[in-house]
């Protein structure tokens, strides 16, 4: 190989490497966010309740925000917009899905936690957000969220906001997902 060919093949290798790196950043980013809890990403699998003593010395405000994404005529209501819990205490809150449209649709609630530094300390024991919901026209379904904030939640966190955004799930997508996702809610 001439020196020019060597240089060119090296730069082409670097190019291919960088193109692959751009795509590798996608899973790396998810892993990074999940490990650090950055960006409000939550571990979306069921956890067992940690049986630890309730820290009665402080209260944490837990707020719930629900909203509907585009293209889904649904409403998600929560029984209490805000609850006060002690760290370590397991709490159950009921959410009600209503399909206001005239068709059967599959949808899914995507969770996000703010501030993001609280997300590693949030353990969801049971959540409607682990799976998709399929609602007939006009149907209403009430589903629980059981969660626990662990005692090691940083002391500067006084309020934790859980946001659920509803998105439609395309039918073929939902079947693929169904085939892949094991039945959730099991005590891990």
């Amino acid at each position: 190989m001439t020196p020019v060919q060597t240089t060119v093949s090296r730069t082409v290798l670097a190019l291919i490497g960088m193109f692959a790196f751009a795509f590798a950043l996608v899973p790396l980013y998810d892993v990074f966010c999940q490990v650090t809890g950055l960006n409000g990403k939550v571990d979306n699998t069921a956890k067992a309740i940690l049986s630890e003593e309730v820290d009665a010395s402080r209260y944490i405000n837990v707020q719930f925000v629900t909203r509907s994404g585009s293209g889904l005529p649904w409403r998600l209501d929560v029984e209490n917009r805000q609850v006060q819990v002690h760290p370590g205490q397991a709490t159950e809150v009921d959410f009600t899905f209503s399909n206001l449209g005239g068709k059967t649709i599959t949808g899914r609630a995507i969770p996000s936690v703010s501030p993001s530094e609280a997300s590693p300390y949030l353990r969801k024991v049971q959540c409607f957000c682990f799976e998709e919901q399929r609602l007939e026209a006009g149907e209403r379904v009430t589903m629980p969220l059981v969660f626990q904030l662990t005692r090691d939640l940083p002391a500067n966190v006084h309020t934790v906001t859980l946001v659920y955004t509803l998105y439609p799930v395309a039918d073929e997508q939902s079947q693929r997902q169904a085939a892949r996702t094991p039945v959730s809610g099991g005590e891990a």
Binding site: A14, L15, M18, F19
Partner: peptide, 14 residues
């Protein structure tokens, strides 16, 4: 350019 244009290509491909 060699380092970042492929990243741009990756982003717009996504």
């Amino acid at each position: 350019l060699i380092a970042v244009m492929p990243v741009l290509a990756g982003v717009i491909t996504m």
